[in-house]
Design a protein around this nucleic acid. Sequence first.
DNA 1: TTGTAAGCGTTATCAA
DNA 2: TTGATAACGCTTACAA
Lengths: 331, 331
Amino acid sequence: MRKRATAKEVAEAAGVSKWTVIRAFKPGASITDEAKRKIMEAAEKLNYSPNLLARSLSTNVTHQVAVLVDDFANPQKLPFLESLTERLQAEGLVAMLININNHFDHVHALLNADQRLVDAIILLGTAFRDETLNDRRLGPGMPPMFVLARDSQIEGVPAVVCDSEVGLRDIVDHLHERGYRRPGFMTGASALSTALKRRHHFAEFWRQKGVDHIVDISAERYSHEDGAESARRYLQETPASERVDVLMCENDILAIGAMETARSEFGLRVPDDIAVVGFDNYELGGTPAFGLTTYEQPCREMVDLIVEMITGKREGETISLPGKLVVRSST
Amino acid sequence: MRKRATAKEVAEAAGVSKWTVIRAFKPGASITDEAKRKIMEAAEKLNYSPNLLARSLSTNVTHQVAVLVDDFANPQKLPFLESLTERLQAEGLVAMLININNHFDHVHALLNADQRLVDAIILLGTAFRDETLNDRRLGPGMPPMFVLARDSQIEGVPAVVCDSEVGLRDIVDHLHERGYRRPGFMTGASALSTALKRRHHFAEFWRQKGVDHIVDISAERYSHEDGAESARRYLQETPASERVDVLMCENDILAIGAMETARSEFGLRVPDDIAVVGFDNYELGGTPAFGLTTYEQPCREMVDLIVEMITGKREGETISLPGKLVVRSST
DNA sequence: TTGTAAGCGTTATCAA
DNA sequence: TTGATAACGCTTACAA
């Protein structure tokens, strides 16, 4: 077991008390330059740095934030993780990445984060069932929770999301203008509130344009294989004349899977035979091979807001940010 | 500030001493069933669970592992993060995700992990400069380090990597058999040892087949835009008759960028006019649009090995695992 | 089996 | 400015 130098040892080496050493490492503390110099010298020699664990035990602040993720198939997670860690670290916080996929019990993950005294818990786009938070194992004293990139109607849990209402209106406006009139909607896991909400807005805006019928297609999960598979099923069982002329998919990965199947297995031209729209603006959707029309989430701004809430620079509240319609060749 | 119940409070509620409470929460401890029952009851009522921070301070074991990542542009990071967190959590460990991109000082990240007393540090595919570890700020008592998915010739730092020698031999054998004779190699950041090594093996195996000249193309970073840009430059300044007939790219993302540019901007057919090979077997490379021939890293096995080393179930040593050639339509 | 004392390395608070 | 005391919540070792 490695051994770290302690403040006490540095104190002895520098000929002061350990409390003076502590002060030397505390930004605004009152200490003479001379004492500080001696201490820093001894500290460097002994390779001392404060033990953050002990500090946390005293202060009850860990500067750790748990980030719960359940869906690693969505490449959109990566830019979110990048921005999030970057912004957190800039605030002196560090992210504990917690995988809550099927293998793990969500409640257990929350309890574990609690036992580690994290300063906050972020649910990053997780398919969290609202009931989870009502589990009796979860006491009242949990760390503050925040939802990022997924709707939360959980009372008292602030969420920062991309405004699906504005987004879908923009999309439907665009599609209608382009002349599409037989829309379909592909969901990834339709039991989730986010999916339902997007589906709802999509239908609603089409209704306002006089289009009442939306074809529903559902994929199991948010992977391009599942997108491909559900598109395949739909195209197989639907004669060409009755097919949708535009397929809106809940995210880019599903859209790419659907688009690829339509093209390679059914010989359909995109967008002439069938147009495809995604959501998220995943990087590769923009390559010429796909040219996917999509809606871009304001990832950086969303992360900024969440981190401001966590650090207390901003009141915790649910915020919807508008994104940006990105029109490409698939529509 | 929220208040957690302590062992002492539970002890009072259950009418025992706090040490008995501790024992009730310690797996193999000697305690009567009756006492344990009473304690668990009181604990549940008070919503008590052990404070892991305090435990760590005493035991000097945090069950936390720092995972350093610098390149979030590579979607391959996601499956690695997924497997890694899954395996670590199965062992009762949790991952601290630390972003060490340009904005952050690598040495500082290491020191911070050290101050948090992490049990180990994993460098996940990071472009770590070997000098970093020689920084004088880094004392001898750092937590054990491990390199995952990138070569490390750092003394005493075990690495688990995909064997690039075997991989490149398989690739070159395949390409030669297909009749390609004018190979090119695209690196993402050629100063890195991994890139140099792959490039070296690629050239070496071609030499064994009697092909001595390799065209070098270098991209700035590992993004599909950079892959596209460097392919564009090369194709612009090279007459069709002198071009490579196969382009091996250091990873799939570069390959996809290059392939797309060749097709959409230069009207080249893949693989007839130019074949393209990637490395990693990134999920979307397999879609019909790309059909990218690539080499698959044994992600799960690699993670398994690293975690076994971390938990001490296996001696720490550098291990190269063979991957799997995945032949698709791009060659 | 259970209780006691000492210690982990810090911080907060107060006295000097 | 500095030193001392108590506390954070747990673990280990030992005694009852």
